[in-house]
């Protein structure tokens, strides 16, 4: 149906659109593996998107923007930690509050600083992440099949895209090959056991929530300074929830998370490119593509296609026995 030349642009935008999903999904993975549910991925991304764009536009440096984005996302992560770890509040309600907080405060500050109806000025030059040419992308582009795949599809993305995909093996390594990862997973399954062995449950969970904030920060900064050129109101547009869906779809495992995000990114890319898809006379409306990530997640959650079992202590505040 589609040859390589029509497929490559779709796959190219799949990679672009998967990147924020992947970063947010890995963020959620760290948090939820440590037993802290996080439905506030969306809010943290949005906050980071605004502050990265705002600082990048004021200073002209996208790297300062990235730092500001990460910092703002980590502040919200800290708030989530305070509510759900220290004060043992409801983690879901805290996530809902964080989403609203970000949705409101970004527009308020944007209006106060820039007076452009809740957006930042468009980023130009060094205020944005520019594409990176992978080595030999030029000379190799003439090679049949491999050339276009390497130089058009894999090369020419911003540095954050490569960071996101490198974060997958890194996450796997941290979780399954380090002492920190073992403890982090244990805290999400059986915190009492970790406590007995003399490791601080609270400390581990704060660490996980902080990593979650860091990754959400990069995801938000990518949205505003690489994928697009500036912040607009509600620009995350539900991506935090698609990332959450991908996390469940992947059953809380890093490599599977990457494939889930690529799948959901592909659906977004197709929905963007084609309005209604005609497959042999049957027209699939664009709304089906929009809803498919959520429908697939519900199916997975229902356990009809393999059961998604969350970390056992997820959502439960840990109360030390006396």
């Amino acid at each position: 149906m589609m040859d390589l030349m029509t497929l490559i642009p779709v796959l190219d935008s799949t990679i672009r659109l998967s990147t924020p999903l992947l970063l947010a999904c890995l963020a959620g993975l760290f948090s939820e593996r440590a037993g802290v549910f996080d439905i506030g991925l969306e809010g943290k991304m949005l906050m980071a998107a605004f502050f990265s764009a705002a600082i990048a536009s004021v200073t002209g440096s996208v790297w300062l923007g990235l730092l500001a984005g990460i910092a703002s996302s980590m502040v919200l992560a800290g708030l989530h930690g305070l509510a759900s770890i220290t004060f043992r509040g409801n983690q879901l309600i805290s996530g809902v509050a964080i989403n609203f907080l970000a949705a409101g405060i970004t527009v308020l500050i944007a209006q106060h600083w820039f007076h452009q109806g809740g957006r930042t000025p468009s980023l130009i030059g060094a205020g944005r992440f520019s594409p990176i040419e992978l080595p030999l992308a030029g000379p190799l582009s003439g090679v049949p099949v491999l050339g276009p795949v390497y130089s058009d599809l894999l090369s020419g993305h911003s540095v954050l895209v490569y960071i996101a995909f490198l974060a997958v093996p890194a996450t796997w390594w941290v979780l399954y090959r380090t002492r920190f990862g073992l403890r982090l997973r244990a805290v999400g399954e059986n915190p009492a056991a970790v406590d007995t062995s003399g490791v601080s449950v609270v400390g581990m969970r704060y660490a996980a929530v902080a990593i979650c904030g860091l990754l959400c920060g990069i995801a938000g900064a990518y949205l505003a300074t690489a994928l697009q050129a500036g912040f607009v109101k509600d620009m995350t547009a539900g991506r935090g929830f698609i990332a959450l869906a991908a996390l469940i779809f992947a059953k809380w495992r890093p490599w599977h998370a990457m494939w889930a995000c690529l799948l959901f990114g592909f659906l977004q890319a197709v929905a963007l490119r084609y309005q209604n898809i005609d497959i042999g006379g049957v027209v699939i409306p664009v709304q089906v593509m929009d809803a498919l990530p959520y429908i697939l997640t519900v199916v997975i959650l229902a356990g009809f296609v393999g059961k998604a079992i969350p970390p056992r202590a997820g959502g439960e505040p840990y109360v030390k026995e006396r």
Partner: peptide
């Protein structure tokens, strides 16, 4: 902007819900 209400709403959810124990 109208988003002030969203912030107030977030703070109400935060304090009456998540930070209840505080």
């Amino acid at each position: 902007p109208r988003e002030l209400i969203v912030v107030i709403q977030a703070l109400v959810i935060l304090f009456t819900g998540a930070l209840d124990n505080m």
